[in-house]
């Protein structure tokens, strides 16, 4: 039986668009963040698979969202959480990401929840201290080792990229032999879609 085309457009939540009201009695964050969920085991396209789950701009708002979501180790295989700044979609071809890249690291199952939480706290709390460079972070639940990624805007700035790596090691308290890899989105796209020379322009 042929798969039906279920959703043509990325399910942006109408109630999570527009300016976010910051309650005056809460602790405002430097940025407003959106959390997305997707699962790679479905046959739908990447962008059709993304679901915007929640949005927050305060410390309290972060916890309100986070405490009602399952930790990565409780998710099904191929599940992905994406936390991105307001206005940035978790897609390589999105304008803020197009010249960017990703640090990716492989984490043992037993520590993924704590690593993800530490990364969340550091990013939301603005601990990376690299201006506007951070776009978002991703955790992907996989068969063997799970992966964490951090996306930044400028893949060509080696000093900056190295600074992010050092902070990652510090925040996650990683052993020095942890497998880490930096790749520009352009490179990643070439490897994933060998025929394509430019990013697809749809859905922007």
């Amino acid at each position: 039986m042929e798969e039906e085309e279920e959703e043509k457009i990325m399910p942006l939540r109408p109630d999570l668009q527009g300016p976010l009201e910051i309650p005056p009695n809460e602790h405002r964050l430097q940025y407003v963040w959106n959390l997305w969920y997707s699962n790679r085991s479905t046959k739908r396209n990447y962008d059709q698979n993304l679901r915007q789950i929640c949005r927050f701009g305060t410390v309290e708002g972060f916890w309100r969202c986070y405490q009602w979501l399952k930790r990565p180790s409780y998710l099904s295989l191929q599940s992905i959480y994406h936390l991105f700044k307001e206005g940035i979609k978790p897609m390589w071809e999105f304008p803020s990401n197009i010249n960017g890249g990703t640090w990716k690291l492989w984490v043992r199952k037993g520590v993924i929840d704590r690593c993800w939480e530490n990364l969340l706290l550091a990013v939301v709390g603005e601990q990376f201290d690299v201006g506007d460079e951070i776009c978002g972070i991703v955790v992907c639940v996989r068969n063997q080792e799970d992966t964490l990624s951090i996306w930044n805007k400028t893949a060509s700035d080696q000093r900056l990229v190295e600074g992010i790596r050092k902070k990652l090691v510090e925040v996650l308290q990683l052993p020095s032999n942890t497998l880490m890899e930096y790749k520009s989105h352009t490179q990643a796209m070439k490897e994933t879609f060998p025929g394509h020379k430019t990013f697809p322009q749809k859905h922007l």
């Binding site: 939540r13 109630d15 999570l16 309650p23 009695n25 809460e26 969920y37 679901r51 789950i53 929640c54 410390v59 309290e60 708002g61 972060f62 916890w63 309100r64 969202c65 405490q67 009602w68 979501l69 399952k70 998710l75 099904s76 599940s79």
Partner: peptide, 16 residues
């Protein structure tokens, strides 16, 4: 304030 359930969190089986 942090323990209050979010008002508009969707219910997604296996996620929320």
């Amino acid at each position: 304030l942090a323990r209050t359930p979010p008002t508009n969190l969707p219910s997604i089986p296996g996620v929320t």
